[in-house]
Design a protein around this nucleic acid. Structure first.
Length: 548
DNA sequence: ATTGATGAAC
């Protein structure tokens, strides 16, 4: 009698422990339960260990390192355990570990099953390495798994991610009984490669469509820079398609951001609220960015302030700091950076880039040097973009010699954007000799870029060297460099109007030019006023003395 | 148990 009741109790404890593991809410809790498991002598009991592995490898609250340690202590892991750890790594920042685990598995003579390969293929997709993907595919064929639809679908995605759209299409064509995931993967493959004609074709041939189909198509148009088309598809989706979700709205708000379509952006925001879509951090970040890019900094701040501090991450801070910076709200931008540090969010490379851009807009040379140095002190390597931004700061401030020296002292070759920043600095601060030198270098660096010829031609124009200016245009035509027309969008009462340089087809042309001339006059007036004040306030720096 | 997607700078 005693034996039966004791074993009942033990079974109860086991069941309780298992259900506690199922309800686990954090790594701390998991570790405590793991400790109970170990002290009960169950450290090799697969029922318990499988759950511990599963949570730490796959939960977004998990810790793949912990699961790796647990895994490596297992005497005889089951195939489920192997798959869990491979899957965990395939979602992690180090997907190549999935492959190492897989190889280890083969060495030990453990046979992978049909669950193993989709994870392994996903890891190869995320590695963006063509050869790895191909050898995984070869292995799949050798082991006779090539007709598994889950595996085939993941192969489509893998080939498309690695840029081999032909390979993706081949796998797609070979599938007997394609399902929605097969079609969506193919569609997304074309959308990712910006082959929108093909993506459109796949979309139209699909026997059924879901949110992901529509979202992939919309996102493809956004990535391809065809923002108006993206918005048009979204309107169609609203009329005849499934309900949009977070991913759809992120793409759509990104399209509005690029178009500067504020009214449309506001409608999108309203739509999100009205549909009761959850305002996730990702979505809030894209709304902040959209409002900032559309010039509505106040509204961007409103969304930003609506996020509770404890839930923010570096991306949304960057979006807001960068947004303030591009609007010349330099003080506010730097203030927000301090706030970010108080909130305990670690700045990253992009944060420093936003700060440098703020400094460039505010003429804050000293502060820029400070941020540039801090970047390295915090263990980050300044990228060519950071250097370009630094050149921009110096060049805008008129410290052309320092900017030039900065470029020469860099351990990396100067990029076009650095020289471009220096060139506009040279033009603005009237160092035309240096401008010409840089302008020539830029054409050498990017002989197929129309803007580079225009850049040098502008230098000549300032000097009134009309023949030289014209020769630049001729050189461009001779080399067959395509001129991309400059255009801009203006949104009036929710309608987007496009203005192309020299295009005279818009019905409100006269009225527009009248207003434009008025604005230009106003700007010139303000500019003269500013310059006068600047001349009264500024002292010349050492650099200026060298150059002028 | 499995496959398909989204945010920040330039």
């Amino acid at each position: 009698m005693l034996g039966v009741s004791l074993s009942c109790k033990i079974t109860n404890i086991y069941q309780n422990l298992l259900s506690l593991l199922d309800k686990c809410k954090s790594m701390l809790e998991l570790k405590q339960l793991h400790a109970v498991v170990i002290s009960s002598g169950l450290s090799q009991d697969n029922q318990f260990i499988s759950k511990i592995l599963y949570f730490s490898a796959l939960s977004y609250l998990g810790d793949i390192n912990y699961s790796d340690r647990v895994f490596s202590q297992l005497c005889s892991p089951t195939i489920f355990n192997w798959n869990t750890i491979i899957r965990g790594y395939s979602n992690s920042k180090i997907p190549n570990h999935s492959l190492s685990i897989f190889l280890k598995m083969l060495r030990l003579g453990v046979a992978p099953d049909h669950f193993t390969y989709p994870f392994l293929v996903k890891a190869s997709s995320r590695l963006l390495n063509k050869e790895t993907g191909v050898s995984v595919h070869a292995h799949i064929i050798r082991t006779g798994h090539e007709y598994d639809r889950f595996i085939q679908n993941s192969l489509i995605h893998m080939y498309a991610s690695c840029g081999n759209i032909v390979g993706a299409q081949k796998v797609f064509d070979s599938i007997q009984g394609k399902n929605l995931v097969s079609w969506n993967s193919m569609l997304d493959g074309y959308a990712k490669c910006e082959k929108m004609a093909m993506a459109q074709k796949v979309f139209e041939s699909m026997p059924e469509k879901d949110v992901r189909s529509w979202s992939s198509l919309i996102d493809g148009y956004v990535k391809a820079g065809e923002y108006r088309e993206a918005l048009a598809i979204f309107e169609k989706m609203r009329a005849v398609g499934p309900k949009a979700n977070e991913v759809t709205m992120v793409s759509v708000s990104c399209a509005c951001a690029h178009l500067g379509a504020l009214e449309k952006g506001r409608m999108i925001h309203k739509y999100i609220v009205d549909c009761g879509l959850p305002l996730t951090l990702v979505l809030q970040t894209s709304l902040v960015d959209m409002y900032a890019k559309c010039g509505a900094v106040e509204e961007a701040l409103l969304v930003f302030r609506g996020v509770s501090k404890s839930q923010t991450d570096v991306l949304i801070w960057n979006a807001m700091i960068g947004g303030l910076a591009t609007h010349g709200l330099v003080e506010e931008s730097l203030k927000l950076f301090r706030e970010m540090q108080i909130a305990g969010v670690e700045p990253d490379e992009v944060t420093y880039l936003c700060l440098l851009s703020a400094c460039a807009h505010g003429g804050l040379v000293k502060e820029a040097w400070h941020f540039f140095e801090i970047l390295s002190k915090r263990g980050m390597t300044p990228t060519s973009e950071h250097c370009a931004c630094m050149v921009d700061v110096l060049a805008r401030a008129g410290q052309l010699t320092t900017a030039y020296q900065f470029i020469c002292q860099m351990p990396i070759e100067p990029t076009a954007s650095m020289l471009g920043a220096l060139l506009s600095g040279c033009i603005n601060h009237k160092n035309l000799a240096l401008a010409e030198k840089i302008g020539r270098k830029l054409i050498e660096l990017e002989p197929n870029h129309d803007g580079r010829y225009i850049g040098l031609s502008n230098v000549y124009a300032v000097e009134k060297r009309w023949d030289d200016a014209r020769s630049m245009r001729e050189a461009m035509e001779r080399r067959g460099v395509k001129k991309s027309p400059g255009f801009s969008f203006v949104e009036i009462s929710g309608f987007l109007h496009r203005f192309i340089a020299h295009d005279k087809s818009h019905p409100d042309l006269e009225e527009t030019y009248f207003m434009l001339n008025f604005v230009v006059l106003q700007m010139k007036f303000n500019c003269r006023k500013d310059n006068k004040e600047r001349l009264l306030n500024d002292t010349l720096t050492e650099d200026d003395l060298h150059l002028f």
